[in-house]
Amino acid sequence: MSDLRELYQEVILDHAKKPRNFHTMPDSAHAADGHNPLCGDRLRVFVRVENGVIEDVSFTGSGCAISTASASMMTEALNGKSLADAQAIFESFHNLLTTGNHADKDEELLGKLAVFGGVREFPVRVKCATLAWHTLQAALQGSAAPVKTE
């Protein structure tokens, strides 16, 4: 049970029930679709970038608690960040979910995102947590093909 509590922390449940930045962005330069066929999660991530800085990021779609909360918290974490910082945060986030190895710099970069550390104990759920992030990368790279995490 302690593992489950680690997975479904209050912050995660809160974001899953009340996702932030949950809307379309008609004037966004970049958008991409993400799909996790394993559980049927479907997300669309919108992002507006100016002078190498993420000016706004939002998402729509439906998914499990982990993928929804991860998308929601990603939008909060990345708003106003430079593309280089966003990439560094994603790398730290990925390390947190997969290896568990993280240095002090990661902790600093991750901030609130550290609550996803519990996902590591549930390998099949890692894809839920990274779906929004991979989708954002596809949006930034202007990839037309939907992202699939399976």
Binding site: L4, G40, C64, C128
Partner: peptide, 13 residues
């Protein structure tokens, strides 16, 4: 109130 995937993970526990 819960997505099937979350239901499955909690039931597994």
């Amino acid at each position: 109130y819960a997505h099937p995937h979350d239901v499955g993970t909690i039931l597994d526990g």
